[in-house]
């Protein structure tokens, strides 16, 4: 099975403090992969670097072997929900329609085909009956489903989701997991930052343990060992902290010979 996403030597800093260090990973296609780790581990930054929202100090990415610019259409990114202005005067349907804009030039309007894709996406995500509501009228779970619908409207192959299950009710969570598993069966690759270690094995086939460094990656049934979890969530944090502090204080960064 080839790799949907490959990352090589990713380094991200924020104000001289390392956020991600020496990350090299690959995620196989047609998988549902979880990125787990403690708070501040750099999980969101990893996704943001993949789609170019953060400029890393170093790092190469490839998606199905190609550069991101060639694959923009194929990648759908769903940010964390709190980054949105909920008072914006916009309806659910209009948000989902934005998923088509990547395929349209700036002067083009949505045609019948696009509308059908939008309808379909809303139906899959279960938000069709909400389509004319203003977005602040939705519950947390409904908001998440709306953004999933937007991602679906993109008709992408790779879905990058940042904490898709945070702050939503149990039934929505189950519905979304079913939806994602169906998408994977249809050929998609899903990568999600996940906050709940206890559900990783049930929801995800593949797991990446992250704490500024990549601790382990592999099948979720193999890789979630006690030792790996310990390395990710506890123990060597003090060494890592001291190291990060030393970098910040000395403000040194690798230079090329």
């Amino acid at each position: 099975m080839s790799a949907a996403i490959t990352v090589n030597n990713l380094n991200v800093r924020y104000n001289y403090a390392p956020v991600l260090s020496d990350i090299s990973l690959s995620i196989p296609e047609q998988n549902m992969a979880a990125i787990i780790g403690p708070n501040g581990a750099g999980k969101s930054s990893l996704l943001k670097s993949l789609v170019g929202l953060i400029k890393p100090d170093s790092g190469e990415f490839s998606f199905f072997g190609a550069n991101i610019e060639k694959q923009r259409m194929n990648i759908a990114y769903v940010a964390q929900r709190q980054e949105v202005d909920w008072d914006f005067p916009i309806t659910v349907r209009e948000v989902v329609e934005m998923g088509r804009f990547g395929h349209l030039s700036w002067w083009q309007r949505l045609d019948k085909k696009d509308s059908r894709i939008v309808d379909n996406a809303m139906q899959m995500a279960g938000v069709t009956n909400l389509q004319n509501r203003q977005i602040s009228e939705l519950s947390g779970g409904q908001q998440q489903r709306m953004f999933v619908a937007r991602a679906l409207a993109q008709q992408a192959n790779i879905y990058l989701l940042d904490e898709p299950f945070a702050g939503i009710d149990v039934s929505t969570e189950k519905a979304l997991v079913e939806l994602f598993k169906k998408l994977v069966k249809q050929g998609a690759t899903i990568v999600a930052v996940h906050h709940d270690v206890s559900t990783v094995k049930d929801y995800f086939d593949y797991a990446l343990l992250l704490n500024q460094y990549l601790i382990a990656q592999g099948k979720s049934t193999d890789v979630l060992t006690d030792e790996n979890l310990k390395k990710t969530y506890t123990a060597q944090e003090s060494v890592q902290d001291s190291y990060n502090m030393a970098i910040k204080q000395k403000q040194k960064w690798p230079i090329h010979d």
Partner: peptide, 13 residues
């Protein structure tokens, strides 16, 4: 030694 025992990096890295 620390990296190779506790993190996952390719050898050259």
């Amino acid at each position: 030694k620390y990296l190779s025992e506790n993190k996952q990096l390719p050898a050259q890295q």
